[in-house]
């Protein structure tokens, strides 16, 4: 028996209330719930709510009945059936763990991919030269230049994604990718703080700071590319279901 749009909406809202808030996790569970509930309604005499509860239990959630005591403590009133959402949390937690592993692989792959593109080489050489020249002549200017260059790069990516305000709250992969970018943005903003710290730096220390910035640049660029890719995938799937 096919579910109605209203029933599907009910399941989607139920999953969200049960803590499956990330769209990229929920979309798979929603499909499973719809299929499983439809099958139960076809092959058994269960009601929609009962079928929903059975599928919830199959996900490893514990169901408990809750009761309330009336104000004069003379009667116990049944207040409803609640799920502890343990199973849903486990699915989400495992997905988060696997996403982290996948992200590192993606990062390495993206760095390699960037090094096959001429445009990236041009960009990288410009950046490295800018860092080298500015640091050679005036240390403070070097930190300012690096800070501005990276801030512009990061904000350009965030502007593309920024149109979809919900993206990072809605997507588990998007949330993780945003966190990585936030760390890089934090480091970049701290570049400006180095202006004052640089006063005491010796030439050798300065050389290592400069080299670290140059070597780290491809990783930052790769993380920005990944963020855009994850966003484009999210946008594509959102558009598919809205058509």
């Amino acid at each position: 028996m096919k579910l109605t749009t209203a029933q599907i909406q009910t399941i989607d809202e139920y999953l969200q209330r049960s803590g499956v808030t990330y769209w990229d996790v929920r979309v798979e569970l929603l499909d499973h719930f719809i299929e499983a509930v439809e099958a139960k309604l076809t092959t058994t005499t269960l009601s929609f709510d009962e079928a929903l509860m059975e599928v919830t239990i199959a996900f490893g959630n514990d169901i408990q009945e809750r009761h309330l005591i009336n104000s004069d403590r003379t009667e116990v009133i049944f207040s409803g059936i609640f799920s502890n959402n343990k199973g849903f949390k486990e699915v989400e937690e495992e997905k988060r763990k696997q996403n982290r592993k996948q992200y590192l692989k993606l990062l390495v792959k993206q760095v390699k991919e960037n090094f096959t593109r001429l445009q990236f080489y041009a960009d990288y050489i410009c950046f490295a030269l800018m860092v080298y020249i500015t640091f050679q002549y005036y240390t403070k200017l070097g930190f300012v230049a690096v800070g501005i260059w990276l801030t512009v790069d990061i904000f350009r990516t965030l502007m593309v994604v920024g149109k979809y305000q919900k993206f990072t709250r809605d997507s588990l992969r998007g949330e993780m990718s945003s966190k990585v970018i936030s760390v890089f943005l934090g480091i970049t903003i701290n570049m400006f703080g180095f202006i004052f710290a640089a006063r005491g730096l010796e030439a050798k220390q300065l050389f290592w700071v400069m080299l670290s910035i140059i070597l780290f640049y491809p990783v930052i660029k790769a993380s920005l590319s990944i963020h855009k890719k994850i966003f484009n995938e999210y946008k594509k799937y959102k558009e598919i279901v809205s058509v």
Binding site: V55, A58, F59, G60, N61, V91, E94, K95, Q98, Q102
Partner: peptide, 17 residues
């Protein structure tokens, strides 16, 4: 196969390529 075990397994196999 319980769903609570299936999806984490699928996600793990996916992450392992």
């Amino acid at each position: 196969i319980t769903e609570g075990a299936l999806y984490p397994a699928l996600h793990k196999l996916e992450a392992e390529d």
